[in-house]
Every structure is written in C-alpha cells, then in structure tokens.
C-alpha cells in the first residue's frame, strides 16, 4: 500500500514536471532558454517516473534497469543540449533582445571554429569549392 502511494506520487510529480517542461519549450523567448526548460525539468521528470517504475515492482532486476535508464538520461540530456546549443550558436541563433551579455561572440574561438567548418565544407564540395566562396 505504501509502495503504491509512493509510486503514484512520484509518477504524477514526474509527469507534471515533463508537462511543464513542454510548456516552457513552447513559451520561453529564445532557443537556449527553452533548452534550460526541456533539459532540466524534462530530465528530472522522466527520472522521477522511471524511479516510480523501479519502486513499483519491488524487484531488484526491474529496479536496476530503472536506475540504469535514469543514469543514462542524466548522462545524455546535457550532452544533447550542449550539441544543439553549440550548433545553433554557430549558425543562426537569435538571442532574446533582453540578453545582457555575450562573451562568446567577442571570443576568438567562434571565429576559428567557423572557418574550420567552412573549410571542411569546401573540401567536401571538391571542385565546386571556388563557387561556394563568392
């Protein structure tokens, strides 16, 4: 009975967090702030639901699989967010107009990375590389 109550509470709180993460994804002003919502609230929500599964079945095999799934989510969610954020920043990211500072824009790193990717693209294009740099 107590196990049932804990399962129900974890499940509902987790689902509510995922739902609110979705709301954040919809109404936050720019891409990176949206990723704050979907990465943190979404991961914790899914983690709580998986924890509910692990507790519900009172079984070590199921619980260890649930723990593995939670660890995997915790490991991959920030990596995915980092990849998307980096890709978006290098291409066509528009930051919110109330953004107050951007130390990356002024840095050398960004320029060098862009040149690298562009050169790589040119190499891939082969003989047409001269037309891609007008």
């Amino acid at each position: 009975m107590i196990v049932d109550i804990i399962t129900a509470i974890l499940m509902v709180i987790g689902s509510a967090l995922v739902c609110i993460a979705g709301l954040g994804l919809l109404r936050m002003p720019d891409l990176i702030i949206r990723m704050h919502a979907s990465t943190k609230a979404g991961t914790l929500g899914a983690g709580l639901v998986l924890a509910a599964v692990g507790i519900h079945f009172v079984d070590v095999a199921v619980a260890s699989r649930a723990v593995a799934a939670i660890l995997f989510l915790l490991l991959t969610a920030p990596v995915a967010a980092h990849m998307i954020g980096r890709a978006a920043y290098r291409t066509d990211l528009k930051l919110w107009e109330r953004n107050i500072m951007d130390e990356l824009r002024e840095s050398e790193t960004l320029r060098r990375r862009e040149a690298e990717v562009q050169a790589q693209n040119a190499r891939d294009a082969g003989s047409t590389s001269s037309s891609s740099a007008p």
Binding site: M35, T39, V79, H82, S107
Partner: peptide, 15 residues
C-alpha cells in the same frame, strides 16, 4: 555535464 543540469546554467561551448 553537471553544470548543464544545475540551476540557471547551460554549458554551450569550449574554447
């Protein structure tokens, strides 16, 4: 990774 999951910060790029 841990910075990305803690309050208000998200790692974006490494020099």
């Amino acid at each position: 990774n841990l910075i990305s999951l803690t309050p208000g910060t998200l790692s974006l790029e490494l020099s």
